[in-house]
Design a protein around this nucleic acid. Structure first.
Length: 448
RNA sequence: GUGGUUGUAGCUCAGUUGGUUAGAGCGCUGGAUUGUGAUUCCAGAGGUCGCCGGUUCAAGCCCGGUCUUCCACCCCA
């Protein structure tokens, strides 16, 4: 049989895994530095935990896990005869793969509320699954790196999470633009434009501004039922380039004014700590899951930065505040705010820019090559002692032709090779070859 | 989910209006080199042409289905 893997999934070669771990390690380090604690949840959740949380589109993208046993015998006769998949799903599948890390987290908070100290800060770096149609940078299995805090509506967390974005990307050597908006400003806009009932439609349309241009956005708004005067009002907003230009336009909306006030505070807090990256207000930033109610973030590669002009990649991180995520699981008044790093896309960008450090691909320091059986015995002792000292060392497992072993060393990408023959065993002075330069010298064990 | 696109050696790709035995580069194996890789030279191995079916005297090439890749939507990291 011909080997294959499911659509939208990937295998990773050792060098790729190391580079992914390099990204995860930096993100994890910053999460911990900011006081976020690790938690884990199962890859499978009860289907009822997941359904209805991501909108109608989201439900279609959920992976369902088939029940065990003779599940069809328990299914409804009529639904079976009618081939009604939607009705059948609940009868033959009670579990699904998690679609993100936020909803399982909400479930977790409700179930463990007595064991947690609030505000509760947690992080998780785990895979999620979506039955989306794959494209480049879009997979059916991918990792999310989330940090969330629940149990506080303090805007200090908005500021803190902005710093977290800033710190992580700075350490990764990537210049980014951190865009910030507030759902309340969008709500205020919808109110003033008379589209309060259609806020979702409105935000989806204006989010596409930089991609399709104003004319197409206006077209789409009309298609979604916006009146001409509403479109005029929206255009005024989108033409306003900064927060203080938007503020007066929202004078007639209480919720809009609240959004402006919150954003001013966050920008003030962040600016006072001198972020390394640009942090900007973007009224067109409308993306976010249905449950975002306050701040919204989106982070993109800064294509104005030297060397990054040609990067074409959507958002590489994002997040938002949600006033009410746990109430659906029966827990009221539990506001939260969280962010997520798109590790897969960050990987692609760093790869494109050649921004991975050289030692992210291989960390073996020495490879020992032995020329005969006696030397091999000796080499096993030596490699054992090197490992005990914390040195990353490996031993070619037989006394093969040196040419063959050297070729293996080259493929492994090891920086230094120790050659051990009868002379070396006798004298204790090993032949050390530096692969990069071809230089060769004699060293003793103590000098390694 | 809608429309399109891609699939030929381990990898990247050629392959004429359908016509005999499907090619190249790189990689791989062996040798030149009994203790020296990456460079050089010589030789060799490696293919159900994604899969299933159809048209035809004849299919890598045409048709249908299916899987996969990538792209545009939808949505999203």
């Amino acid at each position: 049989m011909k080997p294959s893997i499911p659509k939208g999934t990937r295998d990773f070669l050792p060098a790729e895994v190391r580079r992914r771990e390099y990204i995860f390690a930096i993100i994890r380090k910053h999460f911990r530095r900011f006081g976020y604690q690790p938690i884990e949840t199962p890859v499978m959740e009860d289907l009822q935990t997941l359904t209805g949380k991501y909108g109608e589109e989201g439900d279609k993208l959920l992976f369902k896990v088939l029940n065990n046993g003779d599940f069809l015998s328990k299914a409804d006769e009529n639904d079976l005869a009618n081939r009604d998949s939607n009705k059948l799903v609940g009868q033959i599948s009670k579990r699904g793969l998690r679609y993100d890390l936020t909803v399982p987290f909400a479930r977790y908070v409700v179930m463990h509320q007595n064991d947690l100290a609030f505000p509760f800060k947690r992080y998780a770096i785990m895979p999620v699954w979506r039955a989306d149609r794959p494209q480049k940078g879009r997979y059916q299995e991918f990792y999310q790196c989330d940090a969330d805090v629940v149990g506080s509506d303090s805007l200090l967390y908005e500021a803190e999470l902005t710093q977290l974005f800033d710190g992580v990307f700075h350490e990764l050597g990537l210049r980014v633009i951190i865009r910030l908006n507030n759902r309340k400003i969008l709500a205020g806009l919808a109110e003033i434009a008379g589209l309060a009932d259609n806020m979702m439609d409105m935000t989806i349309a204006i989010d596409k501004l930089d991609k399709i241009g104003w004319d197409k956005v206006a077209e789409e708004l009309t298609g979604r039922g916006a009146a001409p005067h509403a479109i005029q009002i929206i255009k005024q907003f989108l033409d306003a380039s900064d927060l203080e230009a938007v503020a007066p336009l929202l004078a007639g909306s209480a919720i809009g004014g609240q959004g402006v006030k919150e954003l001013r505070e966050v920008f003030g807090l962040v600016a006072a700590q001198s972020p390394k990256n640009r942090v900007v207000f973007d009224v067109t930033l409308a993306r976010g899951l249905n449950y975002y109610t306050g701040a919204i973030w989106e982070v993109a590669v800064d294509t104005d930065a030297p060397g990054q002009e040609n990067v074409r990649m959507g958002s590489i991180a994002g997040g938002g505040r949600y006033a009410d995520l746990t109430s659906i699981f029966g827990m009221k008044d539990m506001p939260g705010v969280g962010i997520s790093f798109g590790a897969e896309r960050i990987y692609d960008v760093l790869e494109e820019l050649g921004a991975f450090p050289a030692d992210a691909a291989e960390d073996l320091q020495y490879l020992l090559l032995c020329l005969d059986e006696d030397a091999l015995q000796h080499g096993f002792g030596l490699v054992s002692r090197l490992r005990a000292r914390g040195i990353h060392a490996d031993l070619y497992p037989s006394a093969a032709k040196l040419q063959k072993m050297m070729k293996y060393a080259d493929q492994r990408g090891v920086p230094k090779v120790l050659i051990i023959g009868s002379e070396e065993v006798k004298s204790g002075a090993y032949s050390l070859k530096v692969m990069g330069t071809g230089e060769q010298s004699k060293v003793t064990e103590a000098a390694l």
